[in-house]
Design a protein around this nucleic acid. Structure first.
Lengths: 170, 170
DNA sequence: CTGAAGTTTCAGTAATTTCTGAAAGTTTAA
DNA sequence: TTAAACTTTCAGAAATTACTGAAACTTCAG
């Protein structure tokens, strides 16, 4: 049961984390009432938690025949869960920062201090943009390719320099 | 000035974020008193914020000759700042999860439900471990290599399949 | 030593976030 | 329609987190 604890470290709050943990370790879908009883939280809180998890695209709703209740279960594989959390966090944490920086860079610097400030902001902006773009590219790769890449680890630099040599020869 | 706002989205709280933002856009180091005045926060709060930023290895202390005050400035380049935030967040968010999962996987499953639960935890564990390991490898690469890699983007799969062909031929 | 100039700590307060439960809303079988 | 069975909403309470400011601590020049 303490498995739910770890949820609080990720983007959402304690109970939302617990709810998601609960859904993941249960093979079959759970009703809102079951969740509320298992975790000892109010029915209303479950409803809000589910909404939150849905906004992260992490749970899906199922219906059982002859039963009006809604049953919830994790949406997608563990792999998909990871990419979704990653993507949503990027949207919430990086994207607003990027657009704020962009706005600031449009202003004309009024003095020496602002020139420096903009230089710094520019660097942060470029870095975030490169990383964001790369993250997008990685997500577009097949899990298999991505796995190969990760297993290669830093060995990737050898492969890249190999490629460079081939190109230079050709 | 609203530049400080964005700080609240990253791992630390609003004022700590503001403090760090302030230090980044200022070319010269600032004293605790200057920070407290610029952001309109108490002297004690600045002290706690600095401590927090130091725990993230993001600020350094300087001393000016003929002056007993401590002056603070960002530690390292923008690039280093990014890798540090990334690394520290991993330590705080991923590592405890990993060790919790490891502990759980040592227990013998008592019934069918626990078998499933462990299967899920195992998957999460392996995924986090692979990603953590990869992140470490990336950090050990030179910024230059890393940049080449990022610029390649998903084109990397072509390079990898090229490598495979070469190996199969040889 | 002494005390001036600084920093840190921490109890209490303020602000923010999360949770509850009752009321309002929705859906559907009859 | 109606009403039972469920879900959602949201105002206020509870819990958590962040901030203040005064006291304690540290350092160092004289």
């Amino acid at each position: 049961m303490h498995c739910g604890e770890m949820g609080s470290r990720w983007g959402f709050n304690r109970t939302v984390g617990q709810m998601y943990g609960l859904l993941i370790i249960h093979e079959d879908a759970l009703s809102a009432m079951q969740i509320s009883e298992a975790l000892n939280i109010s029915r209303g809180n479950v409803s809000m938690g589910i909404k939150e998890l849905q906004s992260w695209r992490l749970v899906q709703v199922q219906h059982k025949p002859k039963d009006r209740k809604e049953y919830y279960s994790p949406a997608g594989s563990i792999w998909e869960m990871a990419t979704r959390v990653f993507e949503e966090r990027r949207k919430r944490e990086v994207d607003p920062t990027l657009s704020l920086l962009r706005d600031n860079l449009l202003d004309e610097p009024a003095n020496q201090k602002e020139v420096f400030a903009q230089k710094q902001m520019h660097e942060i902006h470029d870095l975030l943009e490169t990383v964001t773009h790369w993250a997008g590219e990685l997500q577009s790769m097949s899990p298999d390719n991505l796995n190969t890449l990760m297993k290669l680890g830093s060995g990737i630099s050898k492969v890249i320099s190999l490629k460079d040599k081939l190109i230079n020869k050709g």
